[in-house]
Design a protein around this nucleic acid. Structure first.
Lengths: 234, 234
DNA sequence: TCAAAAGTGTTGCATGTACACCCATGG
DNA sequence: CCATGGGTGTACATGCAACACTTTTGA
């Protein structure tokens, strides 16, 4: 922070800084959000995002990863800062600003038990319960940002297991953009980026014929980035 | 913020919350940034963004507008939150997170005296001095976001006077994207949005023939938004 | 053998890009 | 009358959208 204003303007007052996590996951081809039943007063029993105060000796990003780890048992999750919410009366108790961060997790990796211990539940994004405080707003903003970012970054892959099929990938983008896509055009597009590596295995869990598995090639993606790219899918 | 984690995790510690403003303006067809000579220790005399602590009874956005007003005398400036910077050691004095906000101002509107009182100076964006702390990073992030947002929102107009010519508008976009544009294609594009209103006046300050003045039509822009738009210029 | 999902090409249309000349005017 | 910046149209290339049938195989 900066102090260029005259000294008499420098009213220094500390406040609480929290971070709240908007956790997206993919389940049965649907985009879902993980919400928690709040256990402490005020507003105990209401649905909310998971969050925590940021500690004095903790980077913001570290705080986000800590919250996510405590809630899900996962580490090194893809996470991106959304924005901060700082209306003066947003928290009824005391002045507190919250830095919202959104996370994309692979539900397969997921320790289901930890979820239940926290009274957490996955909701489809078009069927969410009301959340406390300004958390509804955070979710709306996060969705918009997710859709925006998915246009220019391959973040969709963060939601899928390491090996995935093209139909799976297509379902994911259909879930993100709530829009049906043409399988021929979709394949043409994703293959044109040259960031998918075809494997010799097939996934037969959803059809008799089976669909080839692919994995994401990060090196090619780096090249693509440098040569001025447009990763627009959908 | 949220408290779903067990109580023993709830280490509540307050910290300072600041806001720093990345102020862009347009001058002689160049995109510029307003930076300030810091007047207080530590780092007195160094270049920095302008900022202030957020007060307990003040919304984040209000704090941003206050900082901008104190620094420039302007009110109701276009301002948008960028993101928060919260490395634990980003400020050498004490733990402090900063919410960066960027502003677009019309230099014409501008009270030049107030700038000088603050030891402020406009720099071209590709010729900036080193700034204190993480302010360089903030500027880079703000530039990226400005370019990104200018693609889908008509924020370019915020930098121009109410009445402007097409060549002025083109220069602005060339400054934002650091790229020359073809005047024929540029006109075709901006007119296709139907958000410019041609006036009967001409601006003769840059040529003998003079260029017609236009103004931005906010109603048509609202219609454009609703009908699913793509405001991509450049 | 058949149901169910995987996989594949072509064409028309729209949009972006490249490009060069005339216009209006003040000095 | 000429130098300066303002203003205009066309042809080509590229990318996107629409569209239907064949393949594989487990039950």
């Amino acid at each position: 922070m900066t102090q260029n204003t005259p000294d008499f303007y420098q009213v220094k007052e500390k406040m609480y800084v929290a971070t709240d996590c908007i956790i997206f996951g993919l389940h049965q081809g649907k985009l879902k959000l993980l919400v928690f039943k709040r256990k402490v007063e005020p507003l105990s029993g209401e649905w909310s995002l998971i969050g925590s105060f940021v500690r004095l000796d903790e980077d913001l990003e570290v705080a986000g990863q800590r919250v996510l780890h405590e809630a899900t048992g996962l580490e090194n999750v893809f996470m991106q800062q959304l924005k901060s919410y700082g209306k003066k009366d947003r928290d009824p108790g005391y002045r507190c600003i919250s830095v919202a961060q959104y996370a994309l997790i692979r539900i397969d990796d997921y320790n289901e038990q930890v979820v239940e211990e926290h009274g957490a539940k996955w909701f489809e994004i078009d069927d969410l319960p009301a959340l406390i405080l300004d958390h509804d707003l955070m979710v709306q903003d996060a969705l918009r940002q997710l859709r925006q970012n998915a246009r220019y970054q391959p973040i969709g892959f963060e939601l899928l297991p390491e090996k995935f099929t093209i139909p799976q990938l297509q379902l994911l983008y259909e879930a993100i953009y709530q829009k049906e896509l043409d399988p021929r055009n979709f394949r043409k597009k994703v293959f044109s980026f040259n960031v998918l590596e075809k494997l010799d295995e097939k996934d037969k869990s959803t059809s008799k014929r089976g669909a080839f598995l692919y994995k994401f090639n990060y090196e090619n993606y780096q090249k693509l980035l440098k040569s001025g790219y447009n990763f627009e899918i959908a």
